[in-house]
Amino acid sequence: MTQNQIDIFRESIPAYVLGAMDVEDARELESHLQTCASCRTELADYRAVSESLLMVSPAKTPPAALRRRLQGHLPSAQKKALPRFAWSFNQLALGIALVVLLALNISSFLQIRSLQKQQTELTKQLQSGQTVLAMLAYPNTESLPITADNISGTLLVDKSRNTAIILVWNLPQLDSTQTYQAWLIDPEGNRTDAGIFRPQADQPYTSASIYSMDDLTNFTGIGVTVEPAAGSDQPTGERVFKVDF
């Protein structure tokens, strides 16, 4: 390498220590510095100058809040904050656990209610079925046909036991605001409430048991009307069918 080439490298050292050289030129100089002791000495001198430039600016006191913020990043401040965080975390976890438990309880309660309702319905059906079988087997039971628009069925009446069973097919479903209501009809045409019932959603036929407190012989027939969901004192809705004893 000629002295002229070395001089060119040496002249670039001030820019190098200031970080102002383009990258490729800096690489070439670094490569040269590995083999050139005089340039390394020059580099050390200029580096001392550039380092002193770091301290040239007159000191300025930063805002006091900066020191406090830095302290907040130190482990002791983090540890102080940790228990409160842990406590909050535990509370949060406890809260979530309570909500989950509450939700499970509500879910379980609703499931139990649903199962109880299904059980009651099944029990009623079973009782109704057993009553039907018992009445069919009983020699004094009268079997009367039920006929109406698109509806057919049988009314089983046992006057000695003041019991009757309505068995109908294709009884239309009602919305939740309505119900079917049975009426016992006396010779003067007066109606006595004999109970409300709704069609089984999953069965093609509907059965309803009627147990009268009065002697069934005092009545001449049974009628069924559509009434509000809670039932009525007297028939108010459309008649579905009527069977005379």
């Binding site: 770091l54 000191a59 300025k60 006191t61 020191r67 830095l70 302290q71 130190l74 482990p75």
Partner: peptide, 29 residues
Amino acid sequence: QGDERAFLTLYDRYASHVYALTMRILRDP
């Protein structure tokens, strides 16, 4: 070694120089 007091001592010693240099470069407090 994690000595916070030593750290704050160095902060008190040099924060004004560091802040002065960063102000000179960034020109925004």
